[in-house]
Write a protein that binds this DNA or RNA. Structure first.
Length: 828
RNA sequence: GCCGGAGUGGCGAAAUUGGUAGACGCAUCAGACUCAAAAUCUGACGCAGCUCACCCUGCGUGCCGGUUCGAGUCCGGCCUUCGGCACCA
């Protein structure tokens, strides 16, 4: 029996408990079945679910349920990206224990996710802050260390004062910290890096394998890696022939036009290149550059500044001498930290040369419109001039010609350069995976023995310390013995960037409770790669690039055999309210708990999918929620008010024998199944899926409203329609569908039923509306048989009274017939 | 500046390969039910004009131009907006 009224809160609780009790969502590694791995980005346990989470997990859950009904063995797991700064800040501010704070949040949010009705096998839950997980993050780090992929170096790094830790380049946004928005400074520190640059070319090349990724994300990754093809040229110092300055350039063709050279203020040999007379000025300039914040320094509006070092270089191509300057428009981290300046053909050099009255030498000439003077740099194509025996060569060809000369002369060679830098993973914070490294006075930097993993985070730490990592306050942690010689040694106290944890969590889901290995390879290779990944666009570079790199690195370490982790990627849009992103500071948040309480999770699920396609921003509106709730009540009534007319084991009579009305309803069923199946397959366009739900329900209502009594045939056709409808609804409204199914006498679970199929022939109408146009404008519409031939359609159109009237006295030039659609008559 | 999206009613949006622009919904208005209201059901709803019961005509997918029998869709040139990158040599 189905209750007359719809009480979402009751039935949702009931079914969530039933699913738990019957282990309906348990996932087996059933290799006989075709797998489908659908993954949503794991949440950070900040305290409570927000609407972005609800959107993300509803999308992936509906996909998961849909694929399950289509016969796939579906993995749709969930876990917690649970290391990170907020837990530590809570510890500092409220004296909380980061672990307790985190686990409490996880417990609450897990309860909320269950209330959302997710089809998740919680036995595979992964929590990145637990030793059973981070043991393997440490294990992978050690493998990478042994292969030289993890290394420590002294470098200018991005330092966030507020977070009291370093940041990766990817975590600096407009010169500010990605997390707290405060200004980032440069500091010189010895830090751990991963050699992502070893994979720059592969990461770039393999973008073409990512067919199911949005172009926007692929472009962002391409731009981030940013390959450029050029050359290294080395110049001897006139005052000190032992010393050389190498430059990286993409324009070797302009090398005859060098009139000066710029090194970054941080350039390693700068002191050797400075004459005693210039020392004071150079030192002052370097000090200023150092003090300047990242934001100031990055500003392209700022006029260029610089000072000469007093020394000179010799251009091996033509023997010309030119001065060396230092200027902060040269970046220490890119290329060689030195730039050859060709003011005639580079905008930045032109601006600098104009300001300091440095010579401007034209070496590329425009053959179409030759010039003798320049008001701005000429950066277009042209022909070489003033370039010795290269004169007259097309500048594109000259690039290779001059590289050849450099190779022959031993002063340079071709070189590919990337913008991508190595990934800085050290963090001077407590709540992260400890880096499993020991410093021994005798043996040096030594990885912890694998059998001693995990290196546990210490508990005896003092969070009140300022300016250093709390880990350093743990005596028990800091002092240890060397894994090689057994002597006194100290542990690394830095922890890893949390993106290290989220790099590989999706592999752990496949074998989450394995205590002997990060995963069983056979099990992993059954599930991997991920068929569909769903998450926010804000991870387009950070997480998605790191994960691609990590997968490739693990492949080369022999840990797995996967080249790209994510076959398809769906980047969901933001959830907005009143036109701007929901945020606590703006006070425009909507609490999922409140929606669950007032309307139920099914309403929330329907609404969050209804108004916009998943990849676009979604505007939350209270009226919209209300509208969805009304729709659910409308659906409920179909079943509650007609129970006596619905049977689950209906037998549909031969379609040709049906009444017109029944025939129409059968057709509506096939059309709905077709449209909904296609829209889900086609990039998960749930908004149009839901409009089809509404159209289908409207058709069912029209049918119901037109009838007082149901004949046997009516009952069968009606049952066919509403039972099919129920299956179509099940992925989006899992609780309601279960309750109705059970009320109709269904056994087990509606989610184990097969997704309905359709027949194309039955999804078509027998007549179509033929549109008749004159000169491309619609003039008439005629109902005709859908099987009509081209000739017949043309006759129908020409014989229409209206068309006859309108074409009278005019010459028909041409008639275009589009079968099944329209006839266009061209007249003069 | 460079790269990549997007621009359609009051609003969210829809529209195989170029083929009836505005499906479906929100809001609004009207009607039914009701003592009344809510809920529910039914209907209208791009703009303008003319009639006004039905009809009919013109305009209309950011702007200008092009291709085509026919353009929201294709091509060229702009504008606006969102996102990414940005002194990368």
């Amino acid at each position: 029996m189905i209750n007359e009224r719809y009480f979402p809160q009751e039935i949702e609780k009931k079914w969530q408990k039933r699913w738990d009790d019957t282990q309906l969502n348990k996932v087996y590694n059933d290799t006989d079945k075709e797998k489908y791995y659908i993954l949503s980005m794991l949440p950070y346990p900040s305290g409570k679910l927000h609407m972005g989470h609800v959107r993300n997990y509803t999308i992936s859950d509906v996909i998961a349920r849909y694929k399950r009904m289509n016969g796939f063995n579906v993995l749709h797991p969930m876990g917690w990206d649970s290391f990170g700064l907020p837990a530590e800040n809570a510890a500092i501010q409220h004296g909380a224990n980061p672990k307790k704070w985190t686990l409490d949040n996880i417990a609450y949010m897990k309860k909320q996710l269950k209330e959302l009705g997710l089809m998740v096998d919680w036995d595979r839950e992964v929590t990145t802050c637990l030793p059973e997980y981070y043991k393997w993050t440490q294990y992978f780090f050690i493998q990478m260390f042994k292969k030289g992929l993890a290394y420590k170096k002294e470098a200018a790094v991005n330092w966030c004062n507020d977070c009291a830790t370093v940041l990766a380049n990817e975590q600096v946004i407009d010169g500010k910290c990605w997390r707290c928005d405060s200004e980032v400074e440069k500091k010189y520190l010895s830090q751990w890096f991963l050699k992502i640059t070893d994979y720059a070319q592969e990461l770039l090349d393999d973008i073409k394998l990512l067919e199911g990724w949005p172009d926007s994300v692929k472009t962002m990754q391409k731009n981030w890696i940013d390959r450029s093809q050029g050359a290294i040229l080395r110049f001897k110092v006139k005052e000190n022939p032992e010393l050389e300055v190498p430059v990286y350039t993409t324009r070797p063709d302009t090398a005859y036009g060098i009139t000066y050279l710029v090194v970054a203020p941080e350039y390693k040999d700068i002191e050797k290149l400075t004459t005693p007379e210039n020392k004071a000025a150079v030192e002052e300039y370097r000090q200023n550059a150092r003090k300047m914040s990242e934001i100031e320094r990055l500003s392209t509006e700022r006029p260029k500044t610089g000072v000469p070092l007093g020394t000179h270089l010799i251009n091996p191509l033509n023997g010309e001498e030119f001065p060396i300057w230092t200027a902060d428009y040269a970046l220490a981290e890119y290329g060689t930290g030195a730039v050859m300046a060709v003011p005639a053909h580079d905008e930045r050099d032109f601006a600098f040369a104009s300001k300091y009255n440095l010579p401007i030498k034209i070496v590329i000439q425009n053959p179409e419109a030759p010039f003798t003077e320049l008001k701005e740099a000429y950066t277009e194509k042209g022909v070489l001039v003033n370039s010795g025996d290269c004169d007259g060569i097309d500048n594109e060809k000259a690039k290779q010609a001059i590289i050849d000369k450099a190779v022959a002369g031993g002063f340079g060679e071709a070189k590919v350069q990337y913008r991508l830098r190595d990934w800085l993973i050290s963090r001077q914070r407590y709540w992260g995976t400890p880096i499993p490294i020991v410093y021994c006075p005798k043996c040096g930097t030594v990885p912890v023995d694998e059998k001693d993993l995990p290196v546990l985070l210490p508990e005896d730490v003092d969070f009140s310390v300022k300016g250093m990592s709390p880990v350093k306050t743990s005596e028990s942690f800091k002092y240890t013995t060397c894994p090689i010689c057994g002597g006194q040694a100290e542990r690394e106290t830095d922890t890893m960037d949390t993106f290290m944890c989220s790099n590989w969590y999706f592999y752990r889901y496949t074998d989450a409770r394995n205590n002997d290995a990060p995963f069983d390879k056979d099990v992993l290779h059954y599930w991997a790669p991920i068929d569909q990944y769903v998450g926010g666009i804000e991870h387009a570079i950070l997480h998605l690039l790191y994960s691609r790199f990590f997968t490739k690195a693990l492949r080369d370490l022999g840990e797995l055999d996967v080249t790209e982790p994510f076959k398809n990627l769906l980047t969901q849009g933001m959830v907005l309210k009143d036109g701007s992103k929901m945020s606590k500071s703006k006070g425009n948040t909507v609490d999922p708990d409140e929606i669950f309480r007032n309307y139920g999770a099914d309403t929330a699920r329907l609404f969050i999918l209804s108004d916009s396609p998943p990849n676009r921003d979604f505007d939350w509106s209270d009226a919209g929620v209300e509208g969805c709730y009304k729709f659910l009540n409308r659906v409920w009534k179909i079943y509650a008010a007609n129970q006596q007319n619905i049977v689950l084991d209906y037998k549909l009579p031969e379609v040709s024998t049906l009444t017109k009305q029944n025939n129409d309803l059968v057709r509506e069923v096939h059309m709905s199944v077709k449209k909904i199946s296609q829209d889900i397959s086609n990039e998960f366009q749930f908004n149009t899926v839901i409009s089809k739900y509404r159209e289908f329900s409207n058709a069912i209502y029209d049918y119901m409203n037109s009838k007082k009594d149901f004949t046997e045939e009516d009952k069968m056709v009606f049952s066919f329609a509403v039972v099919t409808f129920l299956k179509l609804l099940a992925p989006v409204l899992p609780h309601m569908a279960e309750e109705i199914y059970e009320g109709l006498g269904g056994k087990d679970s509606v989610h184990k039923l097969e997704w309905p199929t359709y027949e194309d022939a039955l999804a078509k109408t027998s007549s179509i509306t033929l549109v008749v146009q004159i000169n491309g404008k619609v003039k008439d519409k005629i109902e005709v048989d859908s099987e009509s031939t081209k000739e017949q359609l043309e006759q129908f159109a020409l014989n229409s009274d209206k068309i006859k009237e309108l074409t009278e006295g005019k010459q028909i030039v041409k008639v275009i017939v589009v079968p099944g659609k329209l006839v266009n008559i061209v007249v003069k």
